[in-house]
Simulated scan of single mutants.
Amino acid sequence: MRPLIVLTLFVMTTALVSARELLVYIGTYTKTSSKGIYVARFDTETGKLGEPVLAAEASNPSFVALSPDRRFLYAVSEGAGASYAGKPSGSVSAYTINAADGLLTLINTAATAGKGPCHVSVTPDGKAVMVANYSSGVVALLRVRTDGGLEEPTPASVDQHEGKSVHPTRQKAPYAHSINPSADGKFAFAADLGTDKIYTYRVDSTTGTLTAAEPASVSLEAGSGPRHLAQSPDGRHAYVINELANTLTTFSLDADTGELKALQTIPTLPADFTGHSTTAEVLVRPDGRFVYGSNRGHDSITVFSVDAATGTLSTVEHVSTQGRNPRNFSLDPTGRWLIAANQDGDSLVLFSIDAQTGRLTPTGQTVKIGAPVCVRFK
């Protein structure tokens, strides 16, 4: 065989191996055995997850998010205390991702303008990072520097939620639980568990401002406790999982105004379940045909099918996550695999996804890791 042909085959084989392998980042609570943010290699063909290694030491980096170009990672420090740099604030850190091994190098850390940051996201243009501060009911936008680092938030990039709802202990004040950009980056949607509202903002990532949209919010049924939001790939619908009511609400989404209108609310638990449970995460499969939501207590993931015409949901099945407290889960970009993070089970459990039915099947692989909270594919 000629040398040129050998070289060509080698390059093609190397490209194939590279294309089928992804990195997976895991945010954790560091109260027990974990030390920070971990990274593992994932084979998209076999669904096999490698052993996680420590990518960066950090204090309770519960939620992490990747920049659109996959060069940077951002992580909140949920349990970093009531103050940061002398301010009554939590913190969020920016990291460079090493292209060779996936390990992280700290760029800088900035204040989040509120206490108990629990969720972080990045605008589609990569110019801003958004954080939800649970304990103080505050959301904030931080501009991204050219080196991937973060600027401090300004008064124009911070909003304090107001109000409360009916739950006697969980809704005595606003508790901002997540903030997500729209697909085009024009809007952001913040779910507040304490006020039973989804707040909508106009976003200017260049100037670093959050401005209330019109309407500024939409209310859910009292006692719902909205936690996380996921959007359909076509941008026409949003799905909000309600932690306290154990329900999932489907909204229509107006791409021009950002307005959300409730269409349907459906339970996430089986009708015969009588124990205590709360929901956590909600995600839409990349093809938009199925929605997934996690239940903590019932310790399961509920699979829903999506009506293509209306966006509304029908329950397909409830599948055990084979561990306690499935705080978060993630779908790989191909939509073939799901990784469930069992926070109190200290485990990541792998599932295959049936492309036609959306159903989940355990692959038999469980990876041990201390208190996993968030899973993100790179």
Rank of each mutant, 00 (worst) to 15 (best):
P3Y: 08
F10W: 09
V11Y: 08
M12L: 15
T13N: 12
A15R: 14
S18F: 10
I26E: 08
I26H: 04
Y29E: 10
Y29T: 04
S33P: 01
S34W: 01
I37N: 14
I37L: 11
A40K: 13
A40M: 11
D43Q: 13
G47P: 13
G47V: 13
L49N: 07
P52K: 14
A55D: 13
P61S: 14
V64W: 05
V64Y: 06
L66N: 09
R70T: 10
A75E: 08
A75Y: 05
V76W: 01
A82L: 03
Y84V: 04
Y84T: 07
G90D: 04
S91D: 05
V92H: 07
A94N: 12
A94D: 02
A100V: 13
D101M: 11
L104N: 13
T109C: 05
T109N: 06
N133C: 11
N133H: 02
G137R: 07
V144C: 11
G149H: 13
L150R: 12
E152M: 09
T154K: 15
A156M: 12
S157E: 04
Q160D: 09
G163D: 05
P168G: 11
R170A: 01
Q171G: 04
H177V: 00
S178L: 03
S182R: 00
A190F: 03
D192Q: 04
L193K: 13
T195Q: 00
V203M: 02
T207K: 13
P215T: 02
V218D: 01
S219D: 00
P226K: 12
L229D: 00
A230M: 06
Q231A: 14
R236Q: 13
R236E: 05
H237C: 07
F251E: 04
S252F: 11
L253F: 15
L260C: 07
A262S: 14
T265K: 10
T268N: 10
L269W: 05
F273H: 11
H276G: 10
S277P: 07
T278G: 03
D287K: 04
R289M: 05
Y292R: 03
G297E: 10
T310F: 08
T315V: 15
V316L: 12
E317L: 11
E317Q: 15
S320A: 15
Q322E: 15
N325D: 12
P326R: 01
R327E: 02
R327W: 01
S330F: 01
D332S: 12
D332E: 15
P333W: 11
R336F: 01
A341C: 08
G345H: 02
L350V: 14
F351E: 14
D354K: 10
D354F: 07
G358A: 09
T361V: 12
G364T: 06
V367R: 00
V367W: 00
V367T: 06
K368P: 00
K368W: 02
V373D: 08
V375T: 11
